[in-house]
Amino acid sequence: MSEATGVSGGPPAAADRPRTRPEAIKAVPLRHVWRWISAVVVLALAAALVGTIVTAPNLRWDVVGQYIFGGLILQGALLTVELTVIAMAIGIVLGVVLAVMRLSPNPVVSSVSWFYIWFFRGTPVLVQVFFWYNLNAVLPHIGIGLPFTSIGVQASTNSLISPLLAVILGLGLNEAAYMAEIVRAGIISVEHGQTEAAMALGMRRLQVMRRIVLPQAMRVIIPPTGNETISMLKTTSLAFIAAVPELFTRAEQIASSNFDIIELLIVASIWYLFMTSILTIGQYYIERHYARGSQRALPPTPLQRFRRMLFTFHAPPPIVEGVEAPASLQHGGGR
């Protein structure tokens, strides 16, 4: 390698020659026979399944219809959403803190995080919810003050931890342990050179984390977090044991008075499915947002993809005249 030769000149002369575009390819498209056969089989099976359920002799669909938009069920669904949001908020915030603590060079701080995760991930969430709900059995009073003195404030556990709070604590604190591991995986996935470059600019450890590492870790963190949120939406049904009237508790309460157990389970399930579907869509758009800077073109939205799928099902993609690669692609050498 010799010395610098300055910025290389324009494109070679060959590129300047006028180009005649060859005729577009016209070929008989490949027949996708198996796509059609499999579609027919799947449709037939689905129809049979739906038919069986719909025409089940003892399933009263009128009851399902009667309760699906019932006031109590709607209130329950709303509380389910609230519980999910609050528990996930606790889980995410505490999880990020725990993950950063876990990676701290301070051995005390990282041990505390390790111990937290070990404990909360190692016991069933049902037990934890039960524990908070029954805390007054072992600790009738909770207070803050100097240990071994009478200085401080106290309150009765029952008045401090309502059933709702018990459920929120149980779900949120448990979730934090899982989120901590998800966030930690995301942080580790960011190339070390990023941290080094930021440190070389004089950024402090927490600045590096917040401004450089975490935004890049988001791409790895979000898919499992969406998964956790969907999981949490359903786990809130554990509030049943504390008689907190969320969706499942409401459905159960109604069923125990009119004995339409399956019908109300269907009602609850329809709502759970509806809400998880919304979350799935939301997750998709958040992922798309954080793909910024990592992909040249953003991935298509579900609607665009659906249209494209319909289109390619029976025909090859159309040849669009005059479409040039984006400038970034033409530039070459970029990574």
Partner: peptide, 14 residues
Amino acid sequence: EIGMVFQRFNLFPH
């Protein structure tokens, strides 16, 4: 107060 340039650039991709 010291600038550093790396072999692999290490620009912040986001």
